[in-house]
């Protein structure tokens, strides 16, 4: 009896969630539901659109995932509008199989371009081949995939290793007599973590006055970062640099410093470094509470637009892999304009 009731409820929940997906799909909005089947939206939009619009199908990760993703999604939405000559449909999912299903739908709908930020690097060969056979051009953004590069026109990505290198070079430029670094890492194995950790690890191994006080993963989590730094403070080990691989973790670290009255920022005891350029983080720089913030550029839309324009006008894309410009901001030189322009 209990089991039956449970089964009925579970199926009821499933039906509800199905209709929820269906409901959000036509709107093609940045709904929280992973509306992978928003490909449904395309035919409806198709009938209304005039012939000269370029049809693009955009597959992205869930915009709720992070501030980076929210900014990324917003940027794409602002670029691919009817006014700019595009007829765009969006599909969101953090799961690879749902993204592939969405891609197949876009192919069936006959989009001109397929823009893809893949959840996982593997498993895309077949569906991209289908796209190629159907004459659909594929452009990757933000994330690369394990597939022959003949299957896509271009990929627009961030160079995480370069982000790390820029940050470490900046730190080396501070000419501290000694570098005792608390290194707070992101989720182990993620591209951002590997790139940002790699540069620091190499430098620490090469220089005698660079030491790692502790190297811990806080999994992008501010609370964990706070505990890690708290633990170092409790142990009484001296340190003068906090290298946090994103802004959230830097914020957590700073909360621990404040509790122990350890001064941080420009000209203070501890150098604080973060990544991602959240708006609030850049404001911390502006107030000189932090020292450095490395950009991870979520604004790929203009690059994609340029590539599509090139192809449409009959030109060829000269570069397969386009690495975006990414800045690193120094608290002593950042301006309010930078905060407004680059903050996400």
């Amino acid at each position: 009896m209990k089991k039956k009731l449970l089964a009925v409820l579970m199926s009821a929940v499933m039906v509800v969630s199905l209709t929820a997906c269906g409901g959000s799909a036509p709107a093609a909005s940045g709904d929280a539901a992973p509306a992978a089947d928003s490909g449904d939206a395309a035919p409806a939009a198709d009938s209304g659109s005039s012939g000269d619009l370029i049809k693009v199908g955009i597959i992205n990760n869930d915009p709720n995932e992070s501030g980076y993703r929210t900014a990324n999604d917003k940027d794409l939405k602002e670029m691919f509008t009817k006014e700019n000559g595009y007829d765009a449909s969006f599909a969101y999912s953090l799961k690879n199989d749902e993204q592939i299903t969405a891609a197949q739908k876009f192919i069936t709908d006959g989009v001109d371009y397929l823009l893809l930020s893949a959840a996982d690097t593997a498993g895309w060969d077949t569906v991209l081949k289908d796209a190629q056979d159907a004459g659909i051009r594929v452009i990757l953004f933000d994330r690369t995939i394990d597939a022959p590069d003949s299957l896509y026109e271009a990929s627009i990505v961030s160079d995480m290793a370069k982000e790390g290198q820029t940050a470490v070079d900046w730190l080396a430029g501070q000419n501290l007599p000694e570098y005792n670094v608390i290194h707070i890492q992101g989720v182990m194995g993620s591209a951002a973590q590997q790139g940002r950790s790699g540069a620091l690890d190499t430098k620490v191994a090469a220089e005698s006055n660079w030491n790692i006080v502790t190297q811990q993963t806080a999994e992008w989590n501010a609370e964990k970062a706070q505990q890690i730094v708290q633990s170092v403070i409790d142990a009484g080990t001296p340190f003068n640099v906090i290298y946090a691989e994103n802004d959230d973790m830097a914020k957590g670290a700073v909360a621990a410093l404040d509790k122990a009255n350890i001064s941080h920022g420009v000209g203070k005891d501890v150098v604080v470094m973060g990544f991602d350029c959240n708006k609030w983080a850049l404001e911390e720089l502006l107030n000189k509470n932090w020292n450095y913030d490395g950009q991870c550029n979520p604004f790929q839309a203009s690059y994609i637009d340029e590539i599509i324009k090139t192809i449409e006008s009959g030109g060829t894309v000269s570069q397969k892999t386009i690495i975006m410009d990414e800045k690193g901001f120094d608290a002593s030189s950042i301006t309010q304009e930078d905060v407004d322009k680059y903050g996400i």
């Binding site: 403070i233 410093l257 404040d258 509790k259 122990a260 009255n261 001064s263």
Partner: peptide, 28 residues
């Protein structure tokens, strides 16, 4: 044994605070 050391210090707003591993445990 230094695990049990508790020190009285001041936080960045100038208020007295006890710190040490035991305090961290009570806190978190």
């Amino acid at each position: 044994p230094s695990f049990y050391k508790i020190t009285l210090g001041y936080n960045s707003t100038g208020d007295p605070v006890l710190s040490g591993y035991l305090m961290t445990i009570l806190d978190y």
